[in-house]
Amino acid sequence: MADRSGMVDPAIFEDLQARIDEETTVREELREIVQSLEKQNKAVQFILARAHSTPAYACTFGTSTLYRSAQLTTPVSKVISDASVAVEDQVAIISKLSQAASKLPYYKWNTMWSRQIQDATFGILLCGWLGGNGSDSKPGRLLTIEEVGGIMKVPVNLKDRDAFHLTIEEYLQALISLVDELARLARNSVTLGDYLIPLLISQFIKDLHAGFQILNLKNDSLRRRSDGIKYRVKEVEDVVYDLSLRNLIPKDEKDEKEETGGVVVEQPGAW
């Protein structure tokens, strides 16, 4: 068939293929970075998982005064410092990703790394909750999306320009992972003889649950996963119930709970 009289100008498909090839190159470059991030995420999780088997707060927070001013010297501080080092490596990879991705339309590519960024956010949140990442070794703090962005050295919730950033959805997904993990920690800390952490976790999860309740979520993965939070609330309540039923919660601590428990956010009304 003579090209001249043909239907398709060959330049059309040559141009298309060139565009596709360009994208293939970009995709491979990104995939490499994302894979190294995934690896580093696992390293962070590996370290943080030790929190479940490290007797942590019972001795340190024997009294409420200590609870507020404690500088952790228990093994959990080692978990936190190890994790903080690993998070630094994580941040280095994220910076690399941010640099590469900021040259591209964000939403064209973000599915490639969204999952890994969620996991990284979760690691940072958990580390912060345990007392690391600028939480001054006090457990129970919720890092805001801005704080996570600050640690990651990336902007958050960008709207006015097209660059790499942490989205609200990713942060919320990570919060749900945090809730799941803390529900597990509540039981495990009791096993280790710490009867105070469950109180702290219970209030924390309840606050987050209330927060998720006011969101108008569509029928997406965020909705499906956040539906599970209520079960976590119940799980931890059961732990607290078991403890109080057996009088395992010291009386004065019970009263202190109101003051010290719950989500502590340092951010003054940034929203």
């Binding site: 919320l172 606050d207 969101l215 109101e258 956010v265 003054p268």
Partner: peptide, 21 residues
């Protein structure tokens, strides 16, 4: 953090998320 401040910032944060979403 002062006593009662512990709850409202979370709700404020989520209210921000809500309007964004």
């Amino acid at each position: 953090p002062s006593k009662r401040q512990s709850i409202s910032p979370v709700m404020a944060m989520f209210e921000g998320f809500r309007s964004e979403l």
